[in-house]
C-alpha cells in the first residue's frame, strides 16, 4: 500500500451522508411524545434479544470470551521478556548454568550476581545466583549472551509479591526437578536459530 492516500488530506472531495435530524420539539407535550416514541420503538427489543442470545450462547453454548484472570492466562509471545527462568539439562537434570559470568558482565543495570566454587568433581559449581529485580530492566541481554541457554526470559509477568526475594533466588528461577518434562525450550532472543544445524562445520578428523 502506498502512502499516497494517507498523504491526501483534502477532505473537501469526500462524500458525506447527512444524518436525518428531526426538528427539536419546543413544547412540553412535543418532548413527552418524543420520549415515548423513542422508548417503545422495536429496536430496544432487538438489542435485548442480541444480549440474551449471546448470554445463552456463552453460558450454555461454550462461547464465553472472558479470561478468568488470574485463574486463566493468555499465552504470550516467546519474545516477551518476563521474570527469568533458569533451565536444566533435559538428560541429566543438572542446571545448565556453567558459571561463566557473562550475564553478570553484560548486565547493564548490574543486577546479576553469582558465587562459584571449585567442586569435588573438578567442575565450576554455582553456589548462589541472584538477580536484583528492583534494578532489572528486562532488556534480555543476559538471555542473549548466555552460551548455554541456561538463563532465559520466562513467562511470569506478574511481578508483584510480598518479597522481592521471592523471584531472585536461584532455586526459584530454576525449573523444578519434577517439572523437567514441562520445561519449555526458549525461543526468544539468543535462542538457537532454526537453521543452526546447517551452519555447523565439522572438525576435521584425519586420524
Amino acid at each position: 500500500m502506498s502512502l499516497e492516500q494517507f498523504k491526501n488530506r483534502s477532505v473537501g472531495t469526500q462524500t458525506y451522508k447527512m444524518v436525518d435530524y428531526e426538528p427539536t420539539p419546543d413544547t412540553g407535550m412535543g418532548r413527552f411524545q418524543r420520549v415515548v416514541s423513542r422508548t417503545f420503538r422495536g429496536e430496544l427489543f432487538v438489542g435485548l434479544y442480541v444480549t440474551m442470545r449471546e448470554m445463552i450462547n456463552a453460558l450454555f453454548g461454550g462461547g464465553m470470551h472472558t479470561t478468568k484472570y488470574p485463574f486463566e492466562k493468555l499465552p504470550i509471545s516467546p519474545r516477551y521478556r518476563a521474570i527469568h527462568d533458569m533451565l536444566r539439562l533435559l538428560e541429566s537434570g543438572h542446571y545448565r548454568c556453567i558459571g561463566c559470568g557473562l550475564c553478570e558482565k553484560i548486565c547493564i543495570s548490574d543486577c546479576i550476581k553469582m558465587d562459584t566454587r571449585y567442586d569435588e568433581n573438578q567442575r565450576k559449581e554455582v553456589t548462589e545466583y541472584t538477580i536484583n529485580f528492583g534494578r532489572c530492566i528486562f532488556c534480555g541481554y543476559c538471555a542473549e549472551v548466555c552460551p548455554e541457554l541456561a538463563i532465559v526470559h520466562g513467562q511470569r509477568y506478574e511481578t508483584a509479591s510480598e518479597q522481592r526475594a521471592s523471584f531472585s533466588i536461584f532455586d526459584d528461577m530454576l525449573t523444578p526437578k519434577d517439572a523437567l518434562g514441562q520445561q519449555q525450550e526458549f525461543d526468544g532472543f539468543g535462542a538457537v536459530s532454526p537453521n543452526a544445524d546447517d551452519n555447523i562445520k565439522k572438525t576435521p578428523l584425519a586420524y
Binding site: 558459571g99 559470568g101 553478570e104 558482565k105 562459584t116 566454587r117 571449585y118 565450576k124
Partner: peptide, 9 residues
Amino acid sequence: FKYSANAWE
C-alpha cells in the same frame, strides 16, 4: 582461587 571469581569482576 580456582573457579571462585572471574577476572573481570
